[in-house]
Computed example of a mutant assay.
Amino acid sequence: MIAILDLPEVRQRVSPLTVEDYHRLGEFNENGKRTELIRGIVIEKMSKSPLHATIASRLFKLLLPLVPEGYTARKEEPLTLRDSEPEPDIAIVKGSDADFARSHPTTAALVVEVAVTSVELDRELALVYAEAGVEEYWIVLGNDCAVEVYRRPVNGVYQEKATILSGRELPCRSVPGVSVALEQLFA
């Protein structure tokens, strides 16, 4: 079955929102669901499976003590980008919490999305994050016990992509001192 947004005649009639317009909306849509803005389109956030929640929580706990001075870790908090305002599972940004009291970060050193049922969407987000200059992007493949790693954004495209399997160490090249033993993550 073809997705309705794949039809050119429908895509031309979609009314995209700017980030500024999106900020004027309420936190919840008319159905009481949380949303995020991706490429000018308001998308309802997906519910989280137990596997997704467990991996995201475990990874945040593993990363938090490793975050160096001058960086801050954020969990499920917005990044304000050119035409999107995603809420990644984890982001490590340069600066302190106080730096973002009046506006969300506009890029990150590291963004992590946990993908249990959303792998294709999270792979599409690689373009959004690369365009925003996110230095490193990880997609944690919960069902496969692996992590797709995207690095070196140039002109809106990551130049490096690798898949790291469980049992290996995953060093973050964009945040000094941050490294994750995937065996611990997928235990």
Rank of each mutant, 00 (worst) to 15 (best):
L125E: 13
G40F: 01
S118E: 08
V134A: 07
R123S: 09
Y71S: 04
A126T: 14
F100N: 00
Y22A: 03
I41A: 09
A98E: 15
S57L: 10
S96L: 13
E69F: 09
L110F: 08
S49G: 14
G32N: 06
E44C: 03
E85R: 02
Y22V: 03
D97Y: 15
N29T: 09
V93N: 03
E85C: 04
D99I: 09
P65W: 07
A126E: 04
L37W: 05
T72K: 09
Y71R: 05
I55K: 02
M46Y: 06
I41K: 11
E76G: 11
R58Q: 11
S47W: 08
A53S: 15
D89L: 08
L121A: 13
M46P: 01
F100P: 00
N31F: 14
D99H: 10
A115D: 04
L79C: 05
L25Q: 12
E120D: 14
T106A: 14
R123W: 02
S103N: 14
D97K: 15
I38A: 02
V128D: 02
D99W: 08
A108M: 07
L66F: 02
D89Y: 09
A56P: 01
L141W: 01
L63T: 01
S49M: 09
L51S: 10
V67M: 04
F28D: 11
T54M: 13
F60K: 11
L37A: 03
R39L: 12
E36A: 06
E69V: 11
A115Y: 00
L64N: 11
R58K: 14
E135K: 15
L64C: 05
L81Q: 00
E27G: 10
G133N: 11
V111L: 02
G95C: 10
Y129R: 02
T35I: 13
G40P: 03
D83A: 14
P105T: 05
E76P: 05
V116D: 15
V119W: 06
K94F: 00
G26H: 10
V19C: 12
F100C: 04
V112S: 05
A130N: 05
V93G: 02
P65E: 04
R39I: 03
M46F: 07
G70E: 08
E87M: 10
L25G: 00
R102G: 11
A53T: 11
L127V: 12
Y129W: 09
G26S: 14
L141F: 07
P88K: 05
A126S: 15
T107N: 11
A56L: 01
R58M: 07
L141Q: 07
E131Q: 15
L62Q: 07
E20Q: 14
L25K: 05
G26Q: 12
L121W: 12
N29W: 01
D97L: 15
L110A: 02
K33V: 08
T106I: 10
T54E: 12
V116W: 13
T106C: 12
A109M: 10
E77R: 14
A101N: 13
T106F: 04
A108Q: 03
V116G: 05
H104C: 13
V19L: 14
L121S: 08
A109I: 06
P68A: 05
E30R: 10
S84N: 06
G26E: 14
R74P: 04
V114M: 01
P86N: 06
V140S: 04
L125A: 02
S96W: 10
D21F: 06
S57M: 09
V111Y: 02
G70Y: 07
V134Q: 02
T107W: 07
E76I: 05
P86A: 06
K33N: 13
G32K: 04
L64Y: 12
K75A: 14
S57I: 00
